[in-house]
């Protein structure tokens, strides 16, 4: 891990903490919600040692983060949204979106399309990772509930 990456992880944590405050999260939940942001970028950086493809890394990190959110939500008895909304913050492709716009208005078609596709890839990978875990958790709970009735 380089110093730049270390600084990034800390900044990701601060960013998540800021959003957690804006979402009015308090107490113990504030800590674990912001830690999710730290975790997400830490994982992204660590996975970079094995995987070059960023979209794939986004997908994997999003899945792990959602699992973390589901577990924390059960432990602290609170909605999963608390941890998902804050943990994904460092993964939101703000920079890619900005450069997409910038290239568009510079009339730089080639770079615009490349950046736009990149932004889309990242957002889709992120959302899909979250969705996969959400769907899986719901399936498990539905099965559990059904068994409970019989």
């Amino acid at each position: 891990m380089t110093l730049t990456e270390f600084i990034q992880i800390i900044m990701g944590f601060i960013g998540s903490l800021g959003f957690a405050i804006l979402f009015n999260i308090r107490g113990k939940r504030l800590l674990f919600a912001s830690l999710g942001g730290l975790l997400s970028w830490l994982l992204f950086v660590l996975l970079g040692n094995f995987l070059a493809d960023e979209a794939l890394r986004y997908f994997i990190v999003a899945m792990i983060i959602s699992a973390y959110a589901e577990v924390m939500a059960r432990i602290l008895k609170t909605p999963t949204t608390t941890f998902i909304a804050t943990s994904i913050i460092p993964l939101v492709p703000g920079s890619a979106l900005y450069y997409t716009m910038a290239h568009a208005f510079e009339g730089d078609a080639e770079n615009f399309i490349a950046k736009a596709i990149y932004t889309l890839q990242l957002s889709c990978a992120l959302a899909l990772g979250v969705v996969v875990v959400t769907a899986f958790t719901r399936l498990v709970y539905r099965l559990k509930e059904k068994r409970g009735h019989h």
């Binding site: 909304a85 913050i89 939101v92 920079s95 910038a102 957002s123 979250v130």
Partner: peptide
């Protein structure tokens, strides 16, 4: 202006809306 704008765009960007939307959609 790039980095200063990007930092603030993160405040405006609808990341949560997007993920929640997709979660609802797939549910």
């Amino acid at each position: 202006i790039d980095k200063a704008v990007i930092g603030n765009i993160m405040l405006l960007i609808p990341g949560v809306g997007l993920t929640n939307g997709l979660r609802d959609l797939f549910a």
